[in-house]
Design a protein around this nucleic acid. Structure first.
Lengths: 356, 356
DNA sequence: GTTTCAAGCTAAAACGTTTTAAGGAGTTTT
DNA sequence: AAAACTCCTTAAAACGTTTTAGCTTGAAAC
């Protein structure tokens, strides 16, 4: 039923080969023949079957974004911007993007990630793979891809080992910047609401907190370190605990913005003048911190950069180039009334909340 | 270089046809042969070339999400949740999702949407299309798809005409709910910060505002109607203007949350006790309204439902069923201290900001 | 009047599968 | 012993392209 190249050839009185040549502007075809072919194409409304083209060319111009995410989390919440920039950058390079989300389980069994990835590499549908994972990626899970020389890049995780490209964010550096900023502001009693222990990023931010204090000769106090689960409510609970500690801290560095928001709410309920008596600092750069009252200074994750860089690294590999490992630095996102006293690099002040 | 079905056949000492039969569990094959084939598959690490499978089967199990969005807007900002639910629902139905974003222009010329869509329908790469557009969709732009009987569904816009499926949100109904809620709360002097005139959704929300007032016998006052551009800053400006009007309104219904946030900021700066002296109401249900102080009640767009429904409608068409048109209702998102006095249906109170 | 050359076109193979009709080898029925 | 049936297997066509080597044809060169 659909019109094929043969139909066009017949109508134009030429062979399919000629039609193909005309359409791809190859070989030498007389002007007259060209015209006849083009007319036939027009009249029949012919479009090449891309499937067939792909098969014979062995290329699909398509890459896959494979996201391994816990079933209860949404891809959008955090990675919307990442996807956005990835899509843009990939398109600009002439590739298409297909997406698939996989959870921890498949048919009730733990998902065999290795198997799933190998499948992707071998089914010839994709020319490259962007691997996004909420939890750490093991070398063994991707070693097949390396062996097959299949172009891929891991995003938001680091995987050491021969032949693996990744692009990740410098959580340690970002957190350190934040704490050092607080130190330079004159804070000495700095508390930390950390994220879950099993979370690598939480761990890095926590290490940075410790290191920053130690390096500045500030004693680490056990009572100033609370643990949350990255959700707002746990930030509330932690802050409530913290407010029972004496002497009170003058600043709290929270491992993410959601918990910082919870902490802010509690502090305000207790009548504390936030940022005057107690500074609250977040991490992530989600939209909402701009509109709390007062806005919450935070460490901004360069999610847009992340996607762009991932695309760049992947495309380079597809086109035969070398892979690459990149760690992206974070900027501090500060607000009116926060003087930048850090190294002066990286910080930026955005338009945004100007409450009070 | 890649191992094909022929390699497997040779190693197993059978014909390619037999290998295919074994792998797809069709026809009758002796246990012994099955075992030999499976062993060969295993040993060679063979995976079928899906491209070839697709070509011969004429199916790809893939649908395309085509988003027409202004270049300066991000897909993620608003549609993250939509994409998320669409992806989930589509996967559950056994299809893959590919995404492409197109702007208003292509190669410097206005994009020929009709042409772009026809291309998609005919290149045989996709079995269906989800069409997401920021601006209205014309019948003529999709009539080719209808003629080709290509399964598609328009999301977030309504297109009347034979054979067109869409799923849209009831902006009029949502806005009306909001204004009626305010009326039932006893408000009479209700202002409206509307969205841009050329924006269909803004227009609908505006109409609902007018109708709600009229139906409740409340005079419409010209000075109470301001126009913004959906951005926060325009909400600020509008509120500043509004505060010069006498008598002051006791409530402001904003056409979206961003402007509501701007309005809230100004009101607070002027020392107005928001929600006591002046109620501010938003529209959209973005995350940030939960964390402003006070939180802003709003009309929640069922973006998740939107994606799910789109998937459902599309898949049904692909599988030979009929298309469908659906308008999804909105719920009010209210906060502590807001008593629900509406019709009691649809409203829901979410966990969230509890400031003050 | 051959030979040479270029221009224009095409036949056929290739890409890697699936599917179908038919073939061969036993086994059972008549 | 022929006929009928079952099982198992496969040859070959089909899917719709691209690509390459080679074939015509006519003109230019000798």
């Amino acid at each position: 039923m659909p019109v094929t190249i043969k139909d066009v050839a017949r109508l134009a009185g030429v062979s399919p080969a000629t039609v193909s040549l005309v359409l791809s502007n190859k070989g030498q075809v007389s002007e007259d023949t060209k015209r006849r072919v083009l007319e036939a194409v027009q009249k029949l409304g012919y479009r090449p079957n891309v499937l067939a083209q792909n098969l014979v060319k062995g290329r699909t111009n398509t890459v896959l974004l494979c996201a391994f995410i816990r079933e209860d989390r949404k891809l959008s919440t955090f990675y919307g911007e990442l996807i956005n920039s990835l899509l843009t950058a990939i398109s600009l390079s002439g590739y298409y993007l297909q997406m698939v989300v996989k959870g921890e389980f498949f048919n009730g069994h733990p998902l065999d990630k290795r198997e799933a990835l190998l499948e992707i590499a071998k089914n010839r549908l994709f020319e490259g793979l962007v691997l996004l994972s909420h939890w750490p990626v093991q070398y063994a899970e991707v070693s097949d891809l390396v062996r097959e020389k299949f172009p891929f890049v891991v995003v938001n995780q680091r995987v050491e080992g021969e032949g693996i490209s990744y692009v990740d964010i410098d959580h340690y550096g970002g957190a350190k910047k934040a704490v050092e900023y607080l130190v330079h502001q004159g804070h000495v009693r700095i508390a930390h609401i950390r994220g879950p222990r099993e979370h690598r990023h939480a761990e890095e931010r926590y290490r940075a907190y410790l290191d920053a204090l130690v390096e500045h000769g500030i004693p680490v106090r056990r009572e100033y370190i609370l643990e949350g689960d990255f959700r707002r409510l746990s930030g509330r609970r932690a802050m409530e605990e913290l407010l029972a500690v004496r002497p009170l801290p003058t600043a709290v560095f929270c491992a993410n913005d959601k918990m910082a928001i919870g902490a802010l709410q509690v502090a305000k309920e207790r009548g504390i003048r936030v940022h005057e008596d107690l500074t609250i600092f977040g991490f992530d750069g989600i939209e909402a911190v701009k509109y709390t009252d007062p806005p919450i200074p935070t460490v901004e994750q360069p999610l847009g950069e992340l996607g762009k860089m991932a695309a760049e690294i992947l495309v380079k590999q597809i086109q035969g180039g070398e892979g690459k490992r990149v760690i992206l630095g974070c900027n501090l996102l500060l607000w009116d009334g926060f003087l930048v006293k850090g190294d002066g690099k990286g910080e930026k002040t955005q338009e945004g909340g100007r409450l009070r």
